[in-house]
């Protein structure tokens, strides 16, 4: 793990930004040229949304990976978080501009359709995180910055729920995403009494 961390330390953060940003224009280009199939609007909307969830899962995995395996990816967390926000925004924009199209319909959908309300709530929770993802904000907000970042937890649950709620019939994939998100959040819950009890049993 030490060796791996050494290698990771040498990867510049901009490389993560660059690599993570490539699928955005690439998918759009594929949509334009027909490589996303005959319904590129739906395909683009879904691909951006799935990428956002996948990035979010990586972000949430960073601190458990360090705690349990000693793998240190902290350096890339902000980049991955910002990229998550970018893909959530693109997903939302495709829905607004290419899919729904009718402005009066948009507000009605947000209010009337629970899966859209849930997705929208997740997006709103991510907004302050995106706005404060710079060094100046970290300095200015001090300890409050850390508390603010915890908004990512409810946002992630809402994102996973949004995916589950839009599925037709009983589908496995959205449930897997939601379970992984909930699982990664559960790893953060401190169970001191439980741990102490294990230790007592051990020493007995």
């Amino acid at each position: 793990m030490q060796a791996l961390n050494q290698i990771l330390r040498r990867i510049p953060v901009w490389a993560v930004y660059l690599l993570g940003a490539i699928p955005a224009p690439w998918l759009f280009y594929q949509g334009l040229t027909g490589s996303l199939g005959v319904d590129p609007i739906e395909a683009l909307e879904h691909r951006y949304g799935e990428l956002a969830l996948q990035l979010l899962i990586v972000v949430l995995a960073i601190s458990p990976l360090r705690r349990f395996l000693g793998l240190n990816l902290i350096k890339f967390r902000r980049a991955l978080g910002v990229l998550t926000f970018v893909y959530v925004s693109l997903h939302l924009l495709v829905w607004l501009i290419l899919d729904v199209q009718v402005p009066s319909q948009i507000w009605a959908d947000i209010l009337k359709r629970p899966y859209i309300s849930v997705g929208m709530a997740g997006f709103v929770l991510l907004l302050p995180l995106a706005v404060t993802s710079n060094n100046l904000s970290v300095r200015q907000l001090g300890p409050r910055w850390r508390s603010l970042q915890r908004l990512v937890y409810p946002a992630a649950v809402l994102g996973g729920l949004h995916y589950v709620m839009q599925a037709k019939g009983f589908q496995i994939e959205p449930l897997v995403y939601l379970s992984v998100i909930v699982g990664l959040l559960l790893l953060r819950v401190p169970f001191p009494s439980l741990l102490n009890r294990f230790r007592q049993v051990d020493s007995a």
Partner: peptide
């Protein structure tokens, strides 16, 4: 319940 049925997207019109 999850979407409007007032309009539809004709397949074949591309990204726009």
């Amino acid at each position: 319940p999850r979407w409007s049925q007032a309009t539809e997207r004709p397949i074949g019109g591309g990204l726009f």
